[in-house]
Design a protein around this nucleic acid. Structure first.
Lengths: 206, 206
DNA sequence: ATAATATACTTAACACTGTTAAGTAATACA
DNA sequence: TGTATTACTTAACAGTGTTAAGTATATTAT
C-alpha cells in the first residue's frame, strides 16, 4: 500500500537521524535502510525537504502533547504549570534530539522553505504557554506586559539552553542538571511578580 | 605570497556567507569567486571545516571585542555593564549573521570537530560575563548562586533570542525590538537581587 | 477473455559536492 | 647549469538531490 511505505520511510528516517545525525542523512541511505531504490521515496514525498517537514510536524505534535500534559497536571496553579512546561520542553528536547534538531536547529535557509501553514500549526505550542501566562497575570502571580511577547522570550530562553546542551557547547565543567535548573529558575524569575517571588522551590526530574 | 591568498579566501568566504548563506557555500564556489581552482584552497586550509573554523575564530575575537567595549563603558556599575553586554551580544548576532551562524548555529556534528583548544579560546567570552556577575554579587546587586553557571544561562538565553530571530522563527506579529527588549529584560530580571529589582521593574514601557 | 490503464516500483543519468593524486610551470638555491 | 621548492593546475573518485524514462504487476473496461 502507498501509505505503508510512507510510514516506513518516516520511521526509518527518524532512526537514521538518531543514529547518524542530520548531516549524514541522505536519500540513498534511507533507501538502503528500507530496501527500496532512492527514487521510490519521491513517490511518497515531494523531496527531501518535504520528508523532513513531515517529521518536524510529528515532533511539533509530540511537543504539544507534552506541554498539554503539563497543563493538565497543574490546573489551578499557573506558576507550577509554567515551571512544569519549561521542564517538559527541556526534557522533550534532550530526549528527542532527532526531532529537536530538525524542529529548531536546522539552518535558517532550510526553514524558509517550511510552509507557512505548518508554521501556524507549530505556533500552537506558544499559545499554550501564553495561556498560562495570561492566567497567572489574572491571578497576580506573574508580572508580564505582553503575554505573547513574553511567551516567545520564555521559549527562546529555553531553546537557547536546549540547543547549547545538544550541541555540547556548555562548559564541560558545569553539570548538566545544574545548568538546566539555573536556566529554568532564571526563566521563571524573569516573569514572577515581586510578591510571588520568594521560595524558589525546584523539583528536578532529570 | 602564501598568506595573501589565505586572507583572500577568508574574506571571499565571509562575503559568500553573507550573500548566499552557509548551505550553498561550496569549495568550488569560493574558488570561482577568487579566480583559482578549488584545490588551491586546500593549500591554505586542511579542509572545509578548517576554513570555517578559522572564520569562527575571527568571529569569536570580534564578539570578545564588543563585550570588552561594553565592559569599558560602565566600569563602576555592574548592572548597567551586564545590560550593555547583553545588548552588544544581540546586536553582534544580528549585525554579523554570517559569523553568528557558523559560530553558534552550525550543526552539533559539525562542531564536534571543532578543536578543543579553540573552544577554550571561545570561552573567554563567558569569562567576561562571569566577571561582571561576580562584581555585581560583591556589590549586592545580583542574586546569583554560581557565577559560572549563571553566566552560561545568560548566554544561552540571549543565544536563544538571537538564533530564533536569525532563523525568522519568532512570530511575525511580534515586533523585533519589543522581542529583544523583553528578552534582555527577562534575562536581567533573572539575576537582579530583590533589593535592586524595584526601580527598573516598575517602569516597563515596552 | 482480452485490451487498456493505473500503480508501484526500477535503472540511468545530470549536475552538483568535498577531497585526493598526480602533473606543471616558475622561481630559488646549490 | 641542475636540483628543489613553491604555488598552482587538471583529472578523478565517491558521494549528493533529483528527474526522465522504462518495467513489471495489478486493476478495470469492453
Amino acid at each position: 500500500m502507498e501509505t505503508d511505505l510512507r510510514r516506513v520511510i518516516l520511521d526509518s528516517t527518524r532512526h537514521l537521524l538518531v543514529r547518524d545525525g542530520y548531516m549524514s542523512l541522505s536519500m540513498r541511505k534511507i533507501a538502503r535502510a528500507i530496501g527500496y531504490s532512492a527514487t521510490s521515496i519521491y513517490l511518497h514525498f515531494e523531496n527531501k525537504d518535504a520528508l523532513i517537514h513531515a517529521l518536524i510536524e510529528e515532533g511539533m505534535d509530540q511537543l504539544l502533547a507534552a506541554l498539554k500534559d503539563a497543563e493538565a497536571e497543574h490546573p489551578g496553579d499557573p506558576v507550577a504549570r509554567l515551571e512544569a512546561m519549561c521542564r517538559r520542553f527541556v526534557v522533550f528536547g534532550l530526549e528527542n534530539r532527532e526531532y529537536y534538531e530538525i524542529m529548531f536547529m536546522l539552518h535558517p535557509e532550510f526553514m524558509e522553505r517550511y510552509p507557512a501553514e505548518k508554521y501556524r500549526r507549530a505556533r500552537r505550542n506558544l499559545d499554550v504557554i501564553a495561556a498560562t501566562l495570561a492566567d497567572g497575570v489574572a491571578q497576580g502571580v506573574f508580572a508580564v506586559e505582553n503575554v505573547r511577547v513574553v511567551a516567545s522570550t520564555i521559549w527562546s530562553a529555553l531553546h537557547g539552553a536546549v540547543s547549547l546542551l545538544l550541541a555540547r557547547r556548555v562548559d564541560i565543567r558545569i553539570e548538566q542538571t545544574a545548568f538546566i535548573e539555573a536556566a529554568i529558575a532564571q526563566t521563571l524569575g524573569g516573569v514572577l511578580a515581586p510578591a510571588a517571588r520568594e521560595a524558589p522551590e525546584t523539583s528536578p526530574l532529570l
